[in-house]
Design a protein around this nucleic acid. Sequence first.
DNA 1: AAGAAGGTTTAACCTATTGTTAACAGCCGC
DNA 2: GCGGCTGTTAACAATAGGTTAAACCTTCTT
Lengths: 235, 235
Amino acid sequence: MMENEAKKILLVEDDPNFGIILKDYLTINNFEVTHAKNGMEGFEKFKRNDFDLCILDVMMPYKDGFTLAKEIRDKNASVPIIFLTAKSLKEDVLKGYAIGADDYLNKPFDSEVLLMKIKAILQRKTPENSVDTKQFEFRIGEFFLNSKLRHLSYMQDDPVKLSPKENDLLRLLALHLNDLMTRELALTKIWRDDNYFTSRSMDVYIAKLRKYLKRDENVEILNIHGEGFRLVVKN
Amino acid sequence: MMENEAKKILLVEDDPNFGIILKDYLTINNFEVTHAKNGMEGFEKFKRNDFDLCILDVMMPYKDGFTLAKEIRDKNASVPIIFLTAKSLKEDVLKGYAIGADDYLNKPFDSEVLLMKIKAILQRKTPENSVDTKQFEFRIGEFFLNSKLRHLSYMQDDPVKLSPKENDLLRLLALHLNDLMTRELALTKIWRDDNYFTSRSMDVYIAKLRKYLKRDENVEILNIHGEGFRLVVKN
DNA sequence: AAGAAGGTTTAACCTATTGTTAACAGCCGC
DNA sequence: GCGGCTGTTAACAATAGGTTAAACCTTCTT
């Protein structure tokens, strides 16, 4: 099965029973849910993560859903927000939308309906209207790396196709061009685990990259014993 | 603030009184509203214009809102759709979302709430959504794609008729010509769901498109393992 | 109402790509 | 020279993609 990354949802709901049930339901449906019990905690968690969607209860102690939503909007103008509420005052609904809500559900609601709404909202948000500051293109001596297409080209030759790991690793080296890229950084960023086996796996990839880069003798990957690697371009 | 062009809304509602009131209300709020009195008329009008949003009553004579929505979806996979309905059967709501609704309102509803929902939906839709440009004609090597008519022609040959999905997929590839079109994008935009089966279905459509495109050896669809596809024109 | 036709999804089978691990060899620094 | 790094290759397992055909579902016809 193709493993697409699960979308991350921040759920802020003070009722512990309801919160846990909803969290479980969404988890079963393949979302990665972070549950906060009040507005304060919700905002802390929001700041520490990149969420694809926020579900906020309106009535909560310490900090209500509207206030939280405003703080979230200040940090991030585009993350979708869904409000949940027991009362259904028109003024509240309008206030919610004015803050920039994407939807508004009155309790009790059907969980399947919520699921559909979540999907509908996530669909309208295309992956590329998020301003991606990611850098995809690098010049490395006479090489040119396009890490979006995973292509490494040398002068006029046909580009070589890189595997995802080859590509990630070379990109990380390029980001630290002529400088040290520590083992630890590569392992935590790319392999998401730092142990003997991932470390050996990384060495295998360094070997593969060296093979690709042999064509330009001014480019090489140097090892710094016990520290990491250094992609250098001579001259 | 710059005066943006009024957004065009297709309103399909068989109750004449309610329809006119709603149309006026939306017009006052700076939308350009086309009112159709039944599903038949709604579809005719849809075909003749580019709408930014559709508001469909579910229960209508001749052609109900769901059927109309499906026809609209076949023509245009991404235009937002809001359903209005008097009854609120859960099955109907889910059916609506399954077709690709963006929202679902039960009558009676507050017109201000509808207005806010419309704004929330359009806001998500418009931000420089480069991918969703309203472009329907493409030159792909020696091919010419008219994605309104769903015609793919090669030189002077008779055009091949494409099915809705074939057409949407080729159009999306063409919008990203020579660049990566991610699986995720195609699945969320065209299939409106991203899972194992829709992913395999997409592969089947890629095979179909490759068959059509074989006539021009300079045109091909390349795979980027784990990421998506790339429609390239050589030279 | 039955059947044909067209479109889409699912299943099945096969190939290609990718990542990990083992094995063995050489290297570093003390 | 010794023990822990690093370099390299090859085998293997797991996953993704290519293709065809059958199943399924609507819609259109008769």
